[in-house]
Computed example of a mutant assay.
Amino acid sequence: MTSPKTARETTGKPLGEFGRIDRYFRPLASGFPGARGLADDAAVFGVPPDQELVVTTDAMVAGVHFFPDDAPGDIAAKLLRTNLSDLAAMGAAPYAYTLVTALPKTVGEDWLASFAAGLGEDQARFGIALAGGDSVSTSGPITLSVTAFGLVPKGGAVPRWGGRPGDRVYVTGSIGDAALGLRIAYGTLEVADDSARAALLGRLRRPDPRTTLGPRLVGLATGCLDVSDGLVADLGHLCEESGCAALLESGRVPLSDAARSVIGDDPVRFAMALTGGDDYELLFTAAEDAASALAALSAETGVPVTAIGRLLEGPAGEVTVADPQGRVLDLPTRGWDHF
């Protein structure tokens, strides 16, 4: 049987759908036996008897979630990592994923090769493999979707709705880098420091899903979600589901050196960091007596964990943001909403 590569070189024609799948995506499925070499209509796999399957789906559209001229490897990384972040927020370890690509016919094989290479690099980094998917053409913008599968101990998935008044509110890593990076990418924020500029753009394009910490929060966190819509908005989502309110102490919110240098004393830029979104850090709640265990877990995994507030009795979803002097901040928005 003639290989797709040989056929293309012989005929001079571009690879078709199945040639693309064979060349660029079949290698990504080689590490997952249930994918069956992408030769069948569906994948087949089981779940260990002491585990449950966690499933999440996220889509990205050019011009909405990424710039059309972004590097294909960056697009691939963000696509996969946003889904891995959802798994981490449920306490699940990565298992496998499926991929749907809807590409304009103008997207060539160089783009596809770089995109597949980006997926391959992150598969190796995060311990996950392709299980299948679909590939179609579109007359619209590039549209990509991943459905990711994770494993969590039976009954252990961390919900959004488990927070209770008196719980501390924690966040991993740092907040606001991606929001500032997005303004840099749009050209609405000038940053003279090249290293700060690169750091903020890097966090926008390649978030860092907390896949090492997330599964370790099972049994410790009472509620959890990842920060995609903005810190204040997502804390509000957690509070709505948990039936309580929250106090967010803005002075405790962790900022990177790059973000701190750009924000300075500017309250508008600080509000941007609190509400801008795309951080993909874990925002979770835990009982007061879990503080020492969380500190040890942070040290063990190398993932910074910071206490930034507390859940309170009050209207479900209400989030009060206070400065270090206890004054309530008047924010122009809580976060991102697609509609």
Rank of each mutant, 00 (worst) to 15 (best):
D193K: 10
K78P: 01
V169Q: 01
I21Q: 12
L248I: 05
R160C: 04
E52W: 08
G264C: 10
G63I: 09
G219T: 09
F18S: 12
A7M: 13
S228L: 11
E109G: 09
R125M: 03
G223E: 13
F25E: 15
L99V: 04
V169Y: 00
T11H: 02
L213S: 08
A185T: 05
A178E: 09
N83L: 00
P49N: 10
G16R: 07
A196I: 04
G166L: 00
M1T: 11
S195E: 14
P68M: 05
E318F: 08
R168S: 14
Y95P: 00
G16C: 08
T222K: 06
L331F: 06
M60D: 07
A245D: 08
V328W: 01
R26T: 15
R310F: 03
A293V: 13
G187A: 04
L200G: 04
W111L: 09
P209C: 14
V169R: 01
L297V: 11
D208R: 15
A93F: 08
T101L: 15
L329T: 07
R164H: 02
V268Y: 02
A117V: 01
A71G: 02
P72N: 03
T10I: 01
V152T: 03
L200S: 06
T56Y: 05
M90H: 15
T320Y: 05
D279M: 08
V171N: 00
Q123K: 03
A286P: 12
Y170V: 01
P4E: 08
R160M: 11
G335T: 06
E190I: 09
G277Q: 10
C244K: 07
F149R: 04
Q123L: 01
R81V: 07
L15Y: 12
K78T: 08
G223I: 14
